[in-house]
């Protein structure tokens, strides 16, 4: 059983980076690196992570790292994996490194979906992590395909009117060997999912909710708290998909099993500034109802039905 004590002390994410205070992406990198270790090649598509790693000639990331163009996540990984195979053939690599592709929701849901889909279909052997802050935070918080209904962004000044897409389900439809979601409030769950992904051959997709303090308008000190509330209210479900089966994990599993009570979505909405406007509007109750219905629909898709106590 993994405990905090058993996690490696070595930090491959180096302190003093250019990340904002309380940045979920930097914490996610830190934990991912602990799971994968130093025999890892990191690829980063244009996102906050291109910026929070520092600027030339200094870097906060103690791994071989290539920054890639926005739309190229999957393809860039395929190139590296093919290169590694060629080096193995030459006899120049003893231990194959893990290839980790790191992208935001813009680079995954929107501009990068084609390259990601292609890499998955080609069964490229790599881990794709999408750290999803539900908006284009790096360019100043514009709407993305991951933005939930009702959320304010600079390009949805009255609140987004469309639903977010469920990209984890799209990845499951590719029949890749491993799909999982994770939350920073449950670091051991995330860590174990990364460890598992490292051992599986083929394309592994892990999506992490990354509450962005300036983008979602909450104090940096509450980053973990907001992450936790997203899971507790069901807006972010923790699960794994393996061998054709969905399996809830951690806090979500306890919620589905009725061991802990699901909290109302509105509690989660109220701790953030981005839903303030829609909650205060005449459509506030309707938006709240639609988001609750979204939770039920997501559970239904994964589980087949929604237990009556939820």
């Amino acid at each position: 059983m993994v405990s905090f004590k058993s996690l490696p002390e070595e930090e491959l994410f180096l302190a003093g980076s250019t990340a904002c205070q309380g940045c979920p992406a930097s914490l996610a990198l830190r934990i991912a690196f602990k799971a994968l270790g130093s025999n890892t090649i990191l690829l980063v598509v244009a996102s906050c992570t291109s910026v929070l790693q520092g600027s030339y000639p200094h870097s906060a990331i103690n791994l071989p790292l290539m920054n890639a163009a926005f739309a190229t996540g999957g393809a860039t990984a395929s190139g590296v994996v093919a290169g590694i195979k060629a080096l193995v053939k030459r006899g120049e690599l003893e231990e194959e490194p893990t290839v980790l592709m790191w992208a935001g929701d813009g680079g995954t849901y929107d501009i990068g979906i084609q390259a990601l889909s292609g890499a998955a279909e080609r069964e490229t052997d790599f881990i794709y992590v999408c750290y999803n802050n539900e908006m284009y935070s790096n360019t100043g918080t514009q709407r993305s395909g991951a933005t939930p209904i009702g959320a304010w962004t600079t390009t949805t000044p009255g609140g987004k009117v469309q639903h977010r897409k469920d990209i984890a389900q799209i990845m499951i439809a590719h029949r890749i060997p491993y799909v999982a979601t994770a939350s920073l409030a449950y670091p051991l769950d995330f860590y174990q999912k990364m460890l598992k992904a490292r051992e599986i051959r083929g394309t592994k997709y892990i999506e992490l909710l990354a509450p962005c303090p300036p983008g979602w308008k909450f104090p940096s000190s509450k980053m973990i708290e907001v992450s936790r509330m997203a899971v507790q209210c069901g807006m972010w479900l923790l699960y794994e998909h393996e061998d054709g089966e969905n399996r809830f994990t951690g806090a979500t599993k306890r919620m589905i099993e009725g061991k802990v009570k699901k909290k109302p979505v509105v509690d989660y909405l109220e701790v953030q500034g981005r839903f303030k406007q829609v909650l205060a509007s005449p459509e506030g109750k309707e938006a709240e109802r639609m988001l609750e219905e979204d939770v039920s629909e997501s559970i239904r898709r994964l589980h087949g039905w929604v237990p009556e106590y939820i």
Partner: peptide, 10 residues
Amino acid sequence: AALISASLTG
């Protein structure tokens, strides 16, 4: 994209 990243592996 893959041409570039493959080349970067050497």
